[in-house]
């Protein structure tokens, strides 16, 4: 199986879908002549031409709105946001139009749009360029929310997202773009709404997604040396959530830690916990733990950023608490 980077896997997914379906097109800031701010759309303008790979003005609200309109009349736009931090300028279009039009029209208008781009903290990008905003979209009925953690998942999920008839928010961790991994060639689809056991284990379930999967796996490796067996579950799609996979795991381990990069309050991790305590009430042997960013805007200073973000030590400590080892 070929090895490639996360960004190449995304590029391959888009190119394959554009070859397959003439209704798919890409637009966004610098996706064409500059080949993408993070080079995800490298070579696509040359391959598909200016009608299908479109550079837009710096106007997220405008081009997301245009994308929704294009989707209403039968096209399948992939809209790249230079970062998801800028989705806030377009969020009225996303929440009030993309998410609602299918239902408002009694199903007459499908909105097969994918809004994708990088999210999360990179390195010292401060309060306005480090945000993990997935919880906003998870609280919005009508949207699907996908956050892959590996190049293979990125390809398989993006292809499914493009073929989906609902609007999909597809958030790529900025720091994962250069991550390498094996990626199946050709027709490789991962259904939306299906999680993945990234590491099987028996003592504690850790739910993590996007680049937090790396922290969870590292914590699992270190604890393995102490004889603690951690199961790492990557939901991959946050909405709709594969909660049965999580429930099955918790029924086996009787313990749960949820790891997310976003701040804790009213977030995706809360939803996971709310569901697990209800479905697995009689299976839990310990209070559920969360590891998240601290509840503050992201600081600029490197040492403070490191203090705010989840790290492996905090994940390990949380797992140990669920085992009453701390």
């Amino acid at each position: 199986m070929p090895r490639m980077s996360f960004r190449e896997a995304l590029n391959q997914a888009m190119c394959e879908e554009m070859e397959r379906d003439p209704n798919v097109f890409l637009m966004g800031e610098e996706v064409g002549h500059y080949q993408g701010a993070y080079k995800v759309s490298q070579g696509m303008l040359q391959r598909f031409g200016e009608k299908r790979v479109i550079d837009t003005p710096i106007a997220e609200c405008g081009f997301v709105g245009i994308g929704i309109g294009a989707a209403m009349v039968g096209l399948r736009p992939v809209v790249e946001l230079m970062t998801f931090n800028f989705s806030l300028v377009a969020i009225d279009q996303i929440i009030n139009n993309a998410a609602k039009i299918r239902q408002m029209s009694g199903g007459q208008f499908k909105i097969p749009i994918v809004i994708r781009g990088p999210g999360g903290a990179a390195t010292m990008l401060a309060a306005q360029h480090s945000q993990s905003l997935e919880s906003f979209f998870c609280n919005t009925p009508g949207l699907k929310v996908v956050m892959p953690s590996t190049p293979a998942d990125a390809k398989g999920l993006l292809k499914s997202a493009i073929r989906d008839d609902d609007p999909v928010i597809f958030i790529e961790a900025e720091l994962l773009y250069s991550e390498q991994g094996e990626v199946p060639e050709g027709e490789y689809l991962i259904p939306l709404g299906r999680g993945d056991i990234k590491r099987p284990g028996t003592d504690c379930t850790v739910v993590a997604y996007s680049k937090m999967v790396r922290l969870a796996l590292e914590a699992a490796r270190r604890l393995d040396k102490e004889g603690i067996s951690v199961e790492v579950i990557d939901p991959r799609t946050l909405r709709p959530l594969d909660d049965e996979l999580i429930f099955e795991s918790v029924r086996k381990t009787n313990r749960l830690v949820v790891v997310q990069e976003a701040p804790p309050h009213s977030s995706f991790s809360g939803e996971v916990i709310a569901r697990v305590q209800r479905a697995c009430f009689d299976d839990l042997d310990a209070p559920i733990e969360r590891v998240t960013s601290l509840d503050v805007p992201m600081p600029y200073a490197g040492h403070l950023e490191a203090m705010v973000l989840p790290d492996v030590d905090r994940v390990i400590a949380a797992i140990r608490r669920t085992l009453y080892l701390e």
């Binding site: 919880s135 998870c138 609280n139 009925p141 909405r239 959530l241 804790p264 309050h265 009213s266 977030s267 995706f268 991790s269 809360g270 939803e271 916990i273 709310a274 305590q277 209800r278 559920i288 969360r290």
Partner: peptide
């Protein structure tokens, strides 16, 4: 889903 009540339940 992901509403304020999820936060209360998690707390």
């Amino acid at each position: 889903t992901c509403g304020y009540g999820a936060e209360l339940a998690a707390l």
